[in-house]
């Protein structure tokens, strides 16, 4: 497999604020790669360095096998970027902005603009100034994809989009992916990363904690269970392999579970329950998991 992105010991420090330290990972051609971490962990710093918006303190990164600083203009022909916060020239109409954006690439994008606008349900004749946050985001999406880039870099792309549009957007990404595009998807929402990505890099406090396949991550992951039973249960009823933090409080049981879900589900189906909650652990809990593993 060819690597589309190769990041090699990338470090960026700003005065006293935290940047990123010694980041290394590769993104292979044709994969959807997730990049997760809490706000301020260094996701945007990494992405902005890849796009040569900021320059690394040390280390380097290659995109399509070329240094991302030295060959920046050339590389960017094949990159589509959607920033987390979109804010485009206010005085322009949507179509004017998209045409301006298209004018940087030496191909005719008119047809693609129309297609994308239709999929994303975007009114091309409106002024950008008058658009809501979600609609501005759509402009950003169309702007990032109109030149059919080989590498799509998304920095928290879903904030501000309603669920229906998120769905459309994910379908769009999957379609681009099928056509052969590589996607780097940064997010702090685990579920959307889980849904789309093949592999993820987890970043915390400026350092990569793990690079894992989503499937491995899920196997290693806890699920949070909370069960309301009709009758009081034996305190040890749910005490099986993979369960931790078991708390039994009369008719309410809660615990964390890691392992084959079927074993728990069978146990649950054997008792009369009033209600059940199964939650994904939030990101903090996954990080906790990685910290425990490292310690």
């Amino acid at each position: 497999m060819k690597n589309v992105i190769e990041i090699d010991h990338l470090t960026k420090t700003y005065g006293k604020a935290r940047g990123i330290t010694n980041i290394s990972f590769n993104v292979e051609e044709g994969e959807i790669f997730g990049f997760i971490g809490p706000n301020g962990a260094g996701k945007s710093t990494t992405i902005r360095t890849l796009l040569s918006l900021i320059y690394p303190t040390s280390g380097s990164a290659k995109i399509f096998g070329k240094d991302c600083i030295e060959f920046a203009p050339e590389i960017k022909k094949e990159i589509g970027y959607l920033p987390s916060e979109v804010f485009y020239y206010d005085n322009m109409k949507v179509i004017e902005l998209l045409k301006y954006s298209a004018s940087f690439y030496k191909k005719d994008c008119t047809k693609r603009i129309k297609e994308l606008a239709e999929i994303m349900d975007l009114d091309l004749t409106k002024k950008i100034d008058d658009l809501s946050l979600g609609n501005k985001k759509k402009v950003g999406i169309v702007q990032g994809l109109l030149h059919e880039p080989k590498l799509i870099i998304l920095d928290e792309p879903t904030s501000g989009l309603d669920p229906l549009m998120q769905q459309r957007f994910f379908e769009l990404l999957e379609a681009e992916h099928k056509k052969g595009a590589t996607v780097l998807f940064s997010s702090h929402i685990l579920t959307e990363v889980q849904r789309l990505c093949d592999r993820v890099a987890i970043i915390k406090e400026g350092e990569i904690v793990a690079v894992e396949k989503i499937s491995t991550l899920q196997e290693n992951n806890y699920k949070k269970f909370k069960i309301h039973t009709k009758a009081n249960l034996d305190a040890d009823y749910f005490n099986l392999a993979g369960v931790s933090n078991l708390v039994v409080n009369n008719d309410t049981v809660s615990f964390l579970f890691r392992g084959n879900l079927n074993s728990v589900m069978k146990k649950i189906s054997d008792v009369e329950i009033a209600n059940v909650w199964i939650d994904e652990p939030d990101l903090e809990e996954i990080f906790m998991h990685y910290y425990v593993k490292e310690a």
Binding site: L51, L53, P73, K76, I79, P83, F87, F104
Partner: peptide
């Protein structure tokens, strides 16, 4: 206007 991200991620050099 936060448009620097837009312009600088296009395939153009900063000098240009």
């Amino acid at each position: 206007e936060k448009t620097a991200d837009f312009l600088l991620t296009k395939p153009v050099t900063r000098t240009a």
